[in-house]
Design a protein around this nucleic acid. Sequence first.
DNA 1: TCAAAAAGTAAACAGTGTTTATTTTAATTC
DNA 2: GAATTAAAATAAACACTGTTTACTTTTTGA
Lengths: 215, 215
Amino acid sequence: MPANMLPPLTPAERRHKRIRDTILQAAEKTFAQEGEEGLSIRRLAEEVDYSPAALYKYFASKQDLVDALKESFFERLLDALDALPEQTDNYYAHIHEGLSIYIRTALEKPYHYRAAFSALPSAQVPLPALSDDSVKTRAFTHLLARVHQGVEQGVFRQDLCILDAAKFVWASCHGLVILMTHMPNFEEAYRDGKTLSRPKFIAQHIDFILKGLAP
Amino acid sequence: MPANMLPPLTPAERRHKRIRDTILQAAEKTFAQEGEEGLSIRRLAEEVDYSPAALYKYFASKQDLVDALKESFFERLLDALDALPEQTDNYYAHIHEGLSIYIRTALEKPYHYRAAFSALPSAQVPLPALSDDSVKTRAFTHLLARVHQGVEQGVFRQDLCILDAAKFVWASCHGLVILMTHMPNFEEAYRDGKTLSRPKFIAQHIDFILKGLAP
DNA sequence: TCAAAAAGTAAACAGTGTTTATTTTAATTC
DNA sequence: GAATTAAAATAAACACTGTTTACTTTTTGA
C-alpha cells in the first residue's frame, strides 16, 4: 500500500489539529521575536484564550512545542533550497547560490536557526543516521552531494575527504550566521570605507570558503 | 600618578573580595558543566552555605555573576594567545597556531565560549570600540593585526579588506567550535575510513580557511 | 439515549531570580 | 571601652516559570 495513503481524519481530529495550529501560530510570532526564553506557556495560553493546562492537551511539553517550531523552520529551509534548480552548467555559481540561500534563510529567522542548530550539550539528541531522510539530515546530505560533485568536476581538490570538507563548509557558514545574528554589532563594528555591504560580504565569505577547497 | 597605583584594600574589602571569589569559584564549577541554565542562585547559595539573598551583596544579579565568569574566560583565552611568541620566521605556521589555540581553548570551556560569543539579540550589548583595549576586543584586534601581516607578506591576497577577511576567519573558527560543542554527534556522525582525527580535522579546517585568503 | 472519550480548568507543586524589612555582626569613631 | 555607624546576612515575600493532579464540562460514537 502507498506510504502517503493516510487514514482520513475524523472531525474531532481535524478540530484538534486546527486548534494545535492556532497555538503554534501564536507561539511562532513570539518565538520569532523573542526566542525560546521569551516564549512563556502561560502568556501563550492567555493569548489564545486557554488555560495553561489546556495547552498540554496539544503539546506534551514546552520543548515539544518548540520542536514543532524548529521543524517548520527546517521545512522552510529545505523548501528554499529545493527551489534552486538541480542542474546548471556553472557548478561554482550553483553551489554558491545554494550556500547563499542557506545563509539568507537562516538570517531571516535567527532564533529558529539557533534553536535548530545550536542545541545545548545537555540535550543529547544525536544526529540521525545518513540513511534517514528526515528533514533534519536532508540539508546536510544535499551539501555532501554538492561537495562530491565539486570534487568530480575538478573545482575542488581531488584528495578531499568529502565528509570533512562538507563539515568545513557548513561550519564556516554556520559561524557567519551565528555571529551576524547573535553578536551585537558584528556587522556595523569597525567599518571603514573599504568594508563591503551585507550581500557582498556574504558573497565574499562564500567565495573564501569555496576557494579554501580549490586545487 | 601611575595608573596601577591602586589604593590599598581595607581588611573589610579584602574579606569581601575573598568571599566573592569563593562564590565565583563554586559557580565556575557548575557553569563549566551545566552552563547558564544549570546554574541556580539558590543551589549556589546552598553550596557556599549562604542564603540566596546574601549573594546579592556580592553580585548585582545572576547576569552580573555570569559576566564575571565570562570575563575570566576572556582572560584565559588571551593568556593562551599571549603565550604564543610574537615573531616567527614562518608566518603561516604562526597564524595557524594562533587560530588553533583559539579553537582549542574554546573547546575546553564550551559553555563559557558560547556565553561569551553568542549573546542573544535581546541583550544588546554593543561591541566596544577598537580603540578600547578591553579584554573583549584584544583577541579580535590581535587577529586583525595578523591578517594585516599576512597581506603584507604576500601570504594573503593584496586586495583584501582586512576587516572583512578577519571576520571571515573568525566566523569560520567560531562556527567550528559551536558545531563541535553544541551539535550532538557532529564529530562522530557519518564517519568513514577517510575521516580525520580531531586534531587533524581542526588543523585541516584552519588550512582551508587560510587557503581561502591566499592569492 | 448513554457510556466513553476528549476538552478544558482551577489549584497546587516545585522550581526560578529578585526585593524588602529585619536582625546580626563587624568596623569605626568618640 | 562604649556608642555609633556601616556592612553582612537572613527570612519571608513577590512575581514569575513549566508542569501535574483532580475534577468538571463538553463532545463524540455506538
